[in-house]
Amino acid sequence: MANILTRTGDGYHLEMTEDEVRRDIDKGIQDAVDRAGVAPLEQDEIQHLLEIFKCPDKIVGVESGKEVCLSYDGMASKIRRAHIIINRVQTLQVFERALAADSLELTHIDYSYKPVKPIVGFELPDLDLVLNSTVAPVFYGAMPNLGLYSQPDGPCPNPADLLPLGKIEEARRSYEAAIELAVSDIVYVASQMYEAGVDGINIDTVGAAGDADFLAALLATEKLKRKYPGIGIEMGMAGEFVLGMHGELTYQGVRLAGLYPQDQVRMAEKAGATIFGPAINIVTSGSLPWNIARSVTFTKACSAVSSIPVHANLGMGVCGIPLALTVPVDALSRASKAHVEICRLDGL
């Protein structure tokens, strides 16, 4: 029997026997079950995953009828990143008309709400041009990026300096002050965009600075939905587990530290998000069968409890996609097919 050619989480080729692939799938599932307390995959789903890896084709795709919508992060920088001189409006037009994007996202190169706030007036003319020259729904996207609010980049004492000194209460107060500033910035920028006609806001890479970062996104979402009931809000996460950098923060009575995707989505839904994006970390030394099985197990549990659309974050280094600048299409298409079909996703 021919070996199966797959990859490790950093993208390098790896040859495995069918038994080794099957064992790694089982171990990946078990790791997610142990960590998040979710149900394992069913036997037919495990067999389906195995078949996806056994398929000798370079590119695989979802079955007809299981097509999903795609949303993006940092869309406006993707083509410029390839050293192609193109403006942001043209970039979004290329995504819509040449790359068949289902939704568009206007973004600033410094992809955080804080740096956008002082220059938001210079973002609006581009938004106006995009809205008048495209047809797909348009997001404005950026990250809460709570790290930008602590010294030396921001006004709050740096919790990373305070914690080693045992100043735990001071660090917590600093996080709380940063939350307030971040919520104000997100709401300000999003309000400007919505009042200029944007369809939705993408709050992306949520939780990158831990539970305080997640709470800032939830509170901003709640405020925006109260202010603009028709606004669409996608909340995409930074990782599978909310780090308890503060440790005691709660949202509607639920402690945020330690939440896995099946609970993160419940919080996002309560706050008023209309699309949720779980992000499952990649382990670069693990095989893709292990990584994808693990990611699918977390994500299936998230999709099962969600009443809003789930767009899993299948990008470089998350949800079973290798951590590589040029993602191999065999790996990308296998991870996408597995997530969409087994988790019954709404989008990627």
């Binding site: 919508c69 949303s71 939704s103 369809d199 939705g200 606004i231 209309t274 989008g347």
Partner: peptide, 16 residues
């Protein structure tokens, strides 16, 4: 479909 997902929170089968 993307508009129904984003602005109405409809899941994919309902949106389609």
């Amino acid at each position: 479909m993307a508009r129904l997902q984003l602005n109405r929170g409809l899941r994919i089968d309902a949106a389609k």
